[in-house]
Design a protein around this nucleic acid. Structure first.
Lengths: 153, 153
DNA sequence: AATGAAATCGTTCACAA
DNA sequence: TTGTGAACGATTTCATT
């Protein structure tokens, strides 16, 4: 059984907004007792609908308020080069997200940094050190307009 | 007082990996008792270092495995048009993230969808309905290479 | 700031319906 | 699949160092 019903969806919606809700609080919203809610949460965890519970931190408070997106195009598209890049990018702590893209650009990187100086250092001494990079195109985030943490359920 | 020390940083690091860690477990890792750890967590919450606790769901399991990035350039750059766009984009449930960017492209949107059909519908009937959009450029994610949920602490 | 203890509250599970 | 209740463990508060 891998299906979920409306009750499960409500549970997911609630936990996606606030992982600290108690079983009791969720049960109250659903007009159920603790056990069914408890069992359903365990099931949603076991089936992999819920992957993890995390604390969301404030990047500005942590001293790294700047976000940039960097488009990377490889010079050659040999499998070995691609895999090497994917491997190296895992090691770069500034890179928060990396996507292999369809289209002209091979990779899109989301990077989180404290200053333009740090970005300069990152591009010059870390990113550009990876073999076979052709074009780098960085754009800076001026303002986060929307940032939904959860998915539609 | 808004400073945090190494102990606080360790707590943040642990909680951004696993929000379900008990105070006891964290205290054990730090060789401390419950109270100081408890007080520090409360303090980090109150100071806004910890913004939220959330459950991370599996978008594939939820039936929306496709991610696209869409670059949007406005035709004219009047304040009113910009603000109108920012407002409309909040309402579009497919748009998970939206950034106002420096450079040629005005906005970068991260979009989460179930199928190419849904994306077609989204672009044609929702996004393009917003006034004053000049250029739209969509690229699809082939593979998530890296997706760090937390920040460096 | 940290410790240790005490009260309250939540989680977990066996069993019943 | 859901409800009840009991045992266990976690959270929260506070007097003390």
């Amino acid at each position: 059984m891998e299906q979920i019903d409306e009750i499960d969806k409500t549970i997911l919606r609630l936990l996606q907004q606030d992982a600290k809700l108690t079983t009791k609080e969720i049960a109250a919203q659903l007009s159920l007792t603790l056990s069914p809610v408890y069992e359903r949460i365990k099931r949603l965890e076991n089936l992999g609908f819920i992957k993890q519970y995390v604390a969301i931190l404030d990047k500005t408070r942590l001293g790294r308020p700047i976000t940039t997106f960097c488009q990377v195009s490889m010079r050659y598209h040999d499998k070995a080069f691609i895999e090497k890049f994917e491997e190296e990018v895992q090691k770069l702590e500034e890179v928060q997200e990396c996507y292999h893209m369809a289209g002209q650009v091979d990779f899109l990187l989301k990077i989180n940094i404290s200053s333009l100086d740090e970005y300069h250092d990152f591009v010059k001494n870390k990113l550009s050190q990876i073999e076979n990079i052709g074009i780098l195109n960085s754009t800076f985030v001026l303002k986060e307009i929307k940032h939904e943490l959860g998915y539609r359920v």
